[in-house]
Design a protein around this nucleic acid. Structure first.
Lengths: 139, 139
DNA sequence: GTGTTTGCAAAGTGTTTGCAATTTA
DNA sequence: TAAATTGCAAACACTTTGCAAACAC
């Protein structure tokens, strides 16, 4: 391997490949918005607005589809804190959240900053899929 | 205390009084459904169905209003685990929840069965209003 | 080419609102 | 009777769906 080829979208492309999702124009563009940069908590509507602002032609329906496909593929995690609004978290590693009730904003809390002890076993051989801690802040 | 007077509605009535809510027919009936019996997690629609099944004439709008008034008064706690559906918990004391993702059911976990340590301070003088632990069970 | 993905607009879900009629104190 | 509460139906916000056209491999 002697030459370095310029590969825009590469991170996004790799993620789609790894997830077995066809790298369509829309998925690539959305993946770039989501994953090129720092971790974020974003709603479907926010992402759609951002796409439009970046001259990416994509429908809201496709944004919803894509967010769910990414979530199913483990690229995103869905967070529900508020009735009637879903956020998607680009950070899928083990961590928790502050939720600012007034503004509706979310903020990560690294896993190691909260200790959860003595979680009871799931009843009847069921498996615990996640232990979620939400620290609700009144501001 | 020599005689035991039969006082239907009394628990519900007392709760409404304590909360400063006028004991209307609808509120009394809903309070009885909610508070006479064991603790429960119930949605607006479920409560409305239950009311109708018990020949209580009350509109869905009033059920929503009432649930929110009760929540504001501290008689209920709202729990959001699922996008687009709110549950109301008649147990307002400190505790946590199992959430069965497949069936959508909630189940209490007593506060003392889960230890949460080292919760980081809320930023900038904000107050933590609640630390919520949801143990998501895949069944 | 063939199966997948997209966009649109329509339908769906859960919740809230405006307002006249009713009820409570 | 004055103020609070209710019911209805319409409005709402967010999300999903059906299907024809466009696209990826």
């Amino acid at each position: 391997m002697t030459m370095v080829t310029i590969r825009p979208y590469s991170q996004a492309l790799d993620r789609l490949r790894a997830a077995g999702l066809r790298p369509t124009r829309q998925r690539l563009a959305l993946a770039r918005l989501l994953f090129d940069g720092c971790d974020r908590h974003i709603s479907a509507e926010q992402l759609h607005n951002e796409a439009v602002a970046n001259n990416i032609r994509v429908s809201l329906a496709t944004v919803y589809n894509t967010l769910h496909q990414f979530t199913d593929a483990g690229l995103l995690r869905e967070i529900v804190v508020d009735a009637g609004r879903s956020y998607f978290d680009t950070n899928v590693s083990d961590h928790h959240h502050f939720f600012y009730e007034r503004s509706g904003k979310l903020c990560d809390i690294p896993a190691e900053m909260i200790g959860v002890t003595k979680v009871p076993d799931a009843p009847a051989g069921l498996k615990i899929s996640r232990v979620e801690v939400i620290v609700r802040v009144d501001g």
